[in-house]
Amino acid sequence: MKNIFQTETTDELIERINKLTPDSPALWGKMNVAQMLAHCCVSYEMVYDNIHKAPNGFLKLIIKWFVKESVVNDKPYKKNGQTAPAFIITTTKDFEKEKARLIAYIEKTRDLGESFFDQKESLSFGRLTVTQWNNMFYKHLDHHLSQFGV
C-alpha cells in the first residue's frame, strides 16, 4: 500500500483529484463527483474538525469487532460496499469547494506526518498504528478516485 505520509503519494493523489471535473461520471455507485469529494473529506473531519459524534461505548465495541479490520487492513474495498451514516452524502455540494477541502486535508495529513498519527485515537476504532491510519486514508481515497476513473 502506498504511504499517504510521503510526498510522492500525496502528489499522485492530488494529481488524480485535479483530473476530476464537475461532470466526471461515476463508474459505479450513487454519488456524483462533488458528493464523493465531500464523502472523502469526512475521514479527515473526524480527525481534525470535531464535528462528528463518537459512537457510544457499545456501538464502538461492535464497530471495533466487526468493521475495524476491513477498514484498516490493506485489502481494497469492494464496489458498492456499505458505509457509515456520517459518510452518506445526499445533498448538493460545490465541486471546487470540496476539491479544495480534500486537497488541504491530504496536505495537512502529510505535513503532520506519521508521528502525529502514531497511536492516535480514532473516533470509531480506538488507537490506531501509523500503518492502520495510512491504510484507512489511502485505500479510501484510491477506491473513490478509481470510482471516477482517475
Rank of each mutant, 00 (worst) to 15 (best):
F5G: 01
E8V: 05
E8H: 06
R16F: 10
D23R: 04
P25Q: 06
L27H: 03
G29Q: 01
M31P: 10
N32D: 02
N32A: 01
V33T: 07
V33F: 07
M36K: 04
M36F: 10
C40I: 04
C40G: 05
C41Q: 06
C41G: 08
V42P: 09
E45I: 11
A54W: 03
I62V: 08
F66W: 06
V67L: 05
V71A: 03
N73E: 02
P76Y: 09
K78D: 07
G81K: 09
Q82T: 12
T83Q: 07
A84F: 15
A86Y: 13
F87G: 12
F87V: 13
I89R: 00
I89T: 01
D94N: 01
K97Q: 11
A100E: 09
I103Q: 04
A104L: 12
D111C: 12
L112W: 08
L112I: 08
F116A: 08
D118I: 11
Q119P: 13
Q119C: 10
E121Q: 13
L123W: 11
F125K: 04
T129H: 12
W133E: 04
W133Q: 05
N135F: 05
M136L: 12
Y138D: 00
K139R: 12
D142A: 07
H143A: 04
H143G: 03
H144Q: 05
L145P: 02
G149C: 11
G149R: 08
